[in-house]
Each structure stands twice: as C-alpha cells, then as structure tokens.
Design a protein around this nucleic acid. Sequence first.
DNA 1: TTACTGACGGAGA
DNA 2: CTCTCCGCCAGTA
Length: 103
Amino acid sequence: MATSDAQVEQVRALVATIPVGRVATYGDIAEAAGLSTPRTVGWIMRTDSADLPWHRVIGAGGRPAAHMADRQLRLLAAEGVAIRDGRVDMRGARFPFPDTPNG
DNA sequence: TTACTGACGGAGA
DNA sequence: CTCTCCGCCAGTA
C-alpha cells in the first residue's frame, strides 16, 4: 500500500475533527487513518495543512514540531491546552478518535 | 536506479 | 532526562 489518496484524505479529515482544546499525536492519526508509519502523517501535513488545525497535531509524549514549536505551543495555549515546560500536557488533551471507518 | 532528507516513534546507552 | 540508531514512507537530487 502506497498511501492511497483515501488515506491522505482520512488523515486530513481526522486532523480536521480535532476539537478546540484537544490535541492528537502523529502516531494516533496514522493509526486511525490506517497508515503504517507516522512519518506519512507528517508528510501530509507539510504537503498541505493550510485548511487544517496543524497546531493540534503533536509528536509522541506531547512534543511539538521543533521548527515552529513556539508557534504551536502559543496557539495551543490560546485554545486552552495545558502546557508543561514547553511540552503539551497529554493528560486530558489527547483527542480520542471515535472509530476508524477504514478499519 | 541509488542516496539523502524529513511536521515521527521506539528502544538502547 | 538527553542523545543516538534503526525502521518506516514519500520527496528530491
């Protein structure tokens, strides 16, 4: 499987469903989208994340994107997300994806 | 075609 | 806790 367009749309859809004050990890999104590696999620994001709340997408353990961590943390903090020592407090902030229609 | 790079994640030191 | 190495997939040279 070479990441069908459906997978890409799935990832984009999942990211778009992340509500305010919540966040999701690349791994969770990849898992929910049926991807085999979170790298692909990051690829999709950088490819086109203009219409997506990219700031609600973080790395494992609440690690924000290094190139724009300040911006992401700032946006998350503005939405009410708890930040701890420059990292996102996953406790209660991690958005639980309801179900994966893709299976 | 091979090699290098990158919005990642896990395990080892 | 920080740093490093391997695996994974897609893009670019």
